[in-house]
């Protein structure tokens, strides 16, 4: 990028200025520019500038934490589209989902993706936990990140569970009935917990709106915050690296 042609060509100069204003650096043709790009970019600075080579081997993380996060993003995006159609009322919810599946353009793909990505995320988070355990990556100084991870696992399960009710079909209502019946068994607090969750004694409108609010606002927000802290600590503690 020599200065002369840029000055001679106003279009190139403009493009160069535009690029520079966004990325602050040229293309990462060498280590130094690459490092600076990572340092000055908001989205990239979640990463350290350098990592141990052993830590980026696919065989080390198996991409599982990253995939869990990717699925979370994908679920957020597809979920947003679903929200354009879905009304959390027992009178309309089922029909809305049916319209999504059979009428709305690409509605079926979006819904299918949201569903399968949710199942996949439960699996990848479990596997991520297993890989962290088998590699002893929870040992000092990462004890606390393991705890955050435990809560992330619970949030993931609850997110999936709360979403299960929303289509308001036979599968949904009975799975949630069975699931929330389990809560009843806790001594003293059990029945209250169930009542609180369902907003009543039965899985009905009260339960639908509560699950909806938990599913689209409360749990994703808590999950996202926990992830931010989780990633921050991964970055600060450094990767455990190869064995």
């Amino acid at each position: 990028m020599s200065a002369t042609p840029d000055q001679a060509n106003p279009v190139r100069a403009f493009v160069a200025q535009l690029w520079g204003s966004v990325f602050r650096h040229g293309l990462p043709t060498n280590d130094k520019v690459a490092a600076r790009t990572a340092l000055t970019n908001f989205f990239l600075h979640i990463h350290p500038v350098r990592v141990k080579k052993s830590a980026v081997r696919v065989s080390y993380t198996l991409c599982l934490g990253g995939l869990s996060f990717f699925l979370f993003i994908l679920l957020t995006i597809t979920g947003l589209f679903l929200m354009f159609y879905y009304i959390p009322s027992v009178d309309s919810a089922y029909q809305n989902v049916k319209d999504l599946q059979f009428v709305a353009v690409f509605g079926d793909i979006i819904r299918n993706m949201h569903r399968w990505a949710a199942h996949a995320m439960v699996i990848t988070v479990w596997l991520h936990m297993a890989r962290v355990f088998y590699q002893g990556a929870y040992k000092p100084p990462r004890e606390f990140n393991w705890i955050i991870g435990t809560f992330l696992l619970l949030i993931t399960l609850l997110l999936s569970f709360s979403g299960y009710l929303l289509p308001w079909d036979q599968l949904a209502i009975w799975a949630i009935t069975v699931g929330t019946n389990m809560a009843k068994y806790a001594p003293i607090v059990g029945p209250y917990t169930r009542y609180l969750l369902l907003g009543g004694d039965q899985v009905a409108q009260g339960a639908l709106i509560r699950f909806y609010v938990l599913h689209v606002i409360a749990l994703p927000l808590i999950g996202f915050l926990l992830m931010v802290v989780h990633f921050w600590r991964v970055r600060k503690d450094g990767f455990t690296g190869g064995l």
């Binding site: 079926d108 793909i109 299918n112 289509p167 036979q170 599968l171």
Partner: peptide, 16 residues
């Protein structure tokens, strides 16, 4: 996921 979603529909049974 896109391939899976094109091939397999998410379940939707009778209304609750």
């Amino acid at each position: 996921l896109m391939l899976v979603s094109i091939q397999i529909n998410a379940p939707l049974l009778q209304r609750a």
